[in-house]
C-alpha cells in the first residue's frame, strides 16, 4: 500500500484534486487534458490492483479464521490443549487481520474512481488533439463518482410480481458521465456525450424447499451521442440523406440543415446485462465518422 501513497504524492495538485473530487471540468488543450488525466488513470489502476490484493488477502484470512476455529474445536474435543491454544491464537490473529483489511478496503474504496469513463476520455483525447483547431481547448465535464451512486438514483418502482418472483423492486439510475465540446480545424463544432442508465432489480421468490431467495439483476443501457455542426462555408449535407438509421443499422441519426450550418446528430445505444459497464472510445470515433459521412466538402481549401 505504501507504493500507492508514494504514487499519489508524485501527482501534482490538480491531479490530486481530481482524485478527491472525482469530477473533472474546464477547458484545456486536448493533450494538456491527457497529461492531467493519464497519471490519474494510472493511479486509479493501482487502487484497483490494491483492492484486488485486499480481496485476496481477506479471502485467505477468512479461510484461516474458519480453519483455526475447526482445529480449536476438534482439539478441545480431543483434549489436546496446546494445539487448541495455538489454534485460538491463529483465530484471533486472523480476525484482527480481517478487521484491518476491511478498514483498508473501505479506505481504498473511498479513493477508487469510476475508471471506465476516465479510460474512454483518455483514449479519445489524442484523436481530438489531431483534429482540434490550433490553440482551441476541449471543454470537458467528466463525472467519475460512479454509475449507481445515491445522487444518481432516479427512483424506485412499486413492488410487483413476475413469474416465480413474488416481489420485485426496480431501482433506476441515470449517470451522464461525459460531456465534451471542441472546435475542429475545419470549423466543425463537435459535442460528445456519454450516459449510463441502469435498472437494478431486486427479485425475491420462495424456493421449492420453502426458503426465501433474493437475487439482484442489473441491466445497463449506455448511450453515446455525438453532435457535429458543420459550417456551410466548408460542407453541405449529402443530398440523399434524410435521417434515419445509419449504415450499421444499430444507431440513430438526424441530419438538419439551417442557414450557415448542417447539424448531424448520431446516437448509439449499447445494452448489457450485469453490473459492470464497459465503455469503448471506438464507439465515439465511429459516430463522429458517421457524421462526416453525412456531408461533402463544398470547396477546395488548404488549411493553414
Amino acid at each position: 500500500m505504501s507504493g500507492l501513497k508514494e504514487h499519489r504524492a508524485s501527482l501534482d495538485a490538480a491531479q490530486r484534486a481530481v482524485l478527491d473530487a472525482k469530477v473533472v471540468g474546464g477547458e484545456r488543450p486536448a493533450l494538456e487534458w491527457l497529461g492531467l488525466l493519464g497519471p490519474v488513470l494510472a493511479h486509479d489502476v493501482r487502487i484497483g490492483e490494491a483492492l484486488e490484493r485486499v480481496r485476496r488477502r481477506t479471502y485467505a484470512a477468512s479461510s484461516t479464521f474458519v480453519g483455526g476455529w475447526i482445529v480449536a474445536i476438534v482439539s478441545g474435543v480431543a483434549g489436546v490443549a496446546p494445539l487448541g491454544v495455538a489454534a485460538g491464537v491463529v483465530v484471533v490473529l486472523a480476525l484482527l487481520t480481517i478487521v484491518a483489511l476491511r478498514v483498508e478496503r473501505r479506505r481504498l474504496r473511498t479513493q477508487d474512481l469510476e475508471g471506465e469513463p476516465l479510460r474512454l476520455t483518455a483514449a479519445l483525447l489524442p484523436i481530438l488533439a489531431e483534429d482540434a483547431a490550433p490553440g482551441t481547448p476541449v471543454a470537458l465535464d467528466l463525472d467519475l463518482t460512479g454509475h449507481r451512486t445515491d445522487a444518481k438514483k432516479l427512483g424506485k418502482s412499486d413492488t410487483y410480481r413476475k413469474g416465480a418472483y413474488h416481489a420485485i423492486v426496480d431501482t433506476f439510475y441515470d449517470d451522464p458521465f461525459l460531456r465534451a465540446r471542441v472546435r475542429f480545424a475545419d470549423g466543425a463544432q463537435v459535442s460528445i456525450a456519454g450516459r449510463v442508465q441502469s435498472r437494478v432489480s431486486r427479485k425475491t421468490k420462495r424456493s421449492q424447499s420453502n426458503k426465501i431467495k433474493t437475487k439482484i439483476k442489473t441491466k445497463t443501457r449506455t448511450t453515446y451521442e455525438v453532435d457535429v455542426r458543420f459550417p456551410d462555408r466548408n460542407y453541405a449535407a449529402v443530398p440523399t440523406t434524410s435521417g434515419g438509421p445509419s449504415p450499421s443499422g444499430t444507431d440513430r441519426e438526424r441530419v438538419r440543415t439551417a442557414p450557415g450550418r448542417t447539424a448531424v446528430r448520431e446516437r448509439r445505444v449499447i445494452k448489457a446485462v450485469g453490473p459492470r459497464v464497459a465503455l469503448d472510445a471506438a464507439h465515439v470515433v465511429d459516430l463522429v465518422a458517421h457524421a462526416y459521412d453525412r456531408v461533402d466538402p463544398t470547396r477546395r481549401k488548404k488549411l493553414r
Binding site: P126, R268, V285
Partner: peptide
C-alpha cells in the same frame, strides 16, 4: 458481421497513451 463502419471488437479501439506518444499512436 458487416463491412464498413459499425460496432467494433473490444480492444480494437484507441488506447490510452502518454501525451508524447499521442501523435504516433493516433
Amino acid at each position: 458481421g458487416r463491412p464498413g463502419v459499425g460496432p467494433v471488437n473490444a480492444g480494437e479501439g484507441p488506447q490510452v497513451v502518454a501525451p508524447e506518444d499521442a501523435t504516433a499512436s493516433t
